[in-house]
């Protein structure tokens, strides 16, 4: 099972995660007697980068209309900031005593903290993106719910005008999301559900047309036509609900890579 939930998160965090693991091993092997180098300059570079990140993060929090992001992001920013302070403290301690064991521990703790904090930030953002996609999926569900009250061609035309751009957006965004996921099974489910939605949509519209023609001519079969239409609308609804469910799944487990 992949550790990182999306390919973007994986590409950003994996190299650093690997390096932190290697350094922890190195430190455990060379516990005594090796003086640490002067790390003031690289630590200061990290501090500056963190300060920029925190500034951008705070601006994002202030301008966002996503209440969950506004709630979750500050803690992640604080984690990164706190970890950066640990690195600064460790660097200062090592200047005084290059053999300091507690300084080395702070370095490792600070590095891990930055990794955890940036991971939390990326996850926070990723979840916000998923919520946007789900909002669009729910708009499609809202339209599907009114399919049964469409009884004239004019209404059907309007229905189609409203539904089509919404469906196209869902198709684009879910398709893009599927490509980002690292979990193969989730990807396959999204692909399958999306294919079903694309197949069912024109058939649903057709069934709605048939229903409208039948009731316009006052002929028999209106009930069966309505049942058929409702069945197709329900199938599409089920597929969209499955997409929403899978979008919210995650393979991310903080303890796994900790």
């Amino acid at each position: 099972m992949p550790v990182f939930h999306t390919k973007t998160i994986e590409s950003i965090l994996e190299p650093v995660a690997q390096q932190v693991s290697r350094l922890v091993i190195l430190h455990e092997e060379a516990e005594d007697g090796n003086p640490m180098p002067d790390l003031e300059r690289p630590v200061m570079a990290v501090s500056r980068a963190v300060a920029n990140l925190v500034k951008v993060g705070r601006e994002t929090i202030n301008s966002s209309d996503d209440p969950i992001l506004k709630q979750d992001m500050p803690a992640a920013l604080m984690r990164v900031e706190g970890a950066s302070k640990l690195l600064e403290e460790a660097s200062a301690m090592l200047k005084q005593d290059p053999l300091s064991g507690s300084a080395r521990k702070k370095l490792i703790e600070g590095s891990r903290g930055i990794l955890q904090g940036t991971s939390a930030l990326l996850l926070c953002f990723d979840e916000s993106e998923v919520r946007k996609i789900i909002r669009e999926c729910k708009r499609v569900l809202d339209y599907l719910a009114v399919a049964e009250v469409i009884e004239t061609m004019e209404d059907l035309v309007q229905f189609l005008k409203d539904l089509s751009p919404c469906l196209s957006k869902v198709s684009r965004e879910v398709g893009g999301r599927e490509k980002e996921l690292t979990h193969q099974v989730h990807r396959e489910i999204l692909i399958r559900c999306l294919d079903q939605v694309k197949t069912l949509a024109p058939i649903l519209i057709c069934s709605m047309k048939i229903f409208i023609h039948i009731i316009a001519q006052g002929g028999k079969g209106a009930e069966e036509a309505a049942e058929n239409r409702n069945y197709l609308a329900q199938r599409m609804t089920d597929e969209i609900n499955e997409i929403i469910r899978v979008l919210q799944l995650t393979t991310y487990d903080e303890e796994e890579w900790d």
């Binding site: 190195l26 060379a30 640490m36 630590v43 940036t118």
Partner: peptide
């Protein structure tokens, strides 16, 4: 060990910049 730590801190620096880019990109 020196090279290891400097590499890690450089990598962390890059990591932070990439996260910042992600935020800026998605925010726009």
């Amino acid at each position: 060990l020196r090279v290891g730590w400097e590499q890690l801190l450089t990598s962390i620096n890059r990591n932070i910049n990439e996260v910042e880019n992600q935020i800026l990109t998605r925010d726009s």
